[in-house]
Amino acid sequence: MELSELIFYILAFIGIVAALVTVTANNPIYSILGLIVCFFTISAHFVLMNAQFLAMVNIIVYAGAIIVLFLFVVMMMNLNDLPRSNTHIIWKISGAIGAGALMLLLVASLKVSGNLVQSPTKGDIGLIHSLGHALMNEFLVPFIMTSILLNSAMIGAVLLSKREKQLQK
């Protein structure tokens, strides 16, 4: 067994366990912590595949921004000591069945799709150098559009929470 394979299995195991913790934990704080762990393992996978730029971005955006946002909301709203809503067992069973069915089908589709062709690997595609080139040349317009999207999302979020205050007054 190669070292990289070993690292892959370890990372995969940690990631799956963390993901399970995320969806099963009673306390949302635990969920969030599980999610952070899971995201870190995914970033590690990125590093394994020499996609360093995305690994950084993943940590910064997901772990740094999004998860912190979740954490903020949960803590500021005191959602962690909310009485656990007693989800009916039927929902759990049907959720498990639905997820299982989907997984089965995805696996089945993986099995039947056989024609995966390996291209000659170039090691540097995940580096910030090549990605930056791509973003600033071919994808310049979508890149700028992304900034507009983020800007409008920010305005939307502000507006959504602000209007509430005006209503309460």
Partner: peptide, 23 residues
């Protein structure tokens, strides 16, 4: 909402299943 999501997931399953059998 949960029911709707379940229905959505099952529908996706059906669509994927249909294509799988079609293949």
């Amino acid at each position: 909402t949960s029911f709707y999501i379940l229905a959505m997931v099952l529908s996706i399953c059906f669509i994927i299943g249909y294509y799988l059998i079609g293949i």
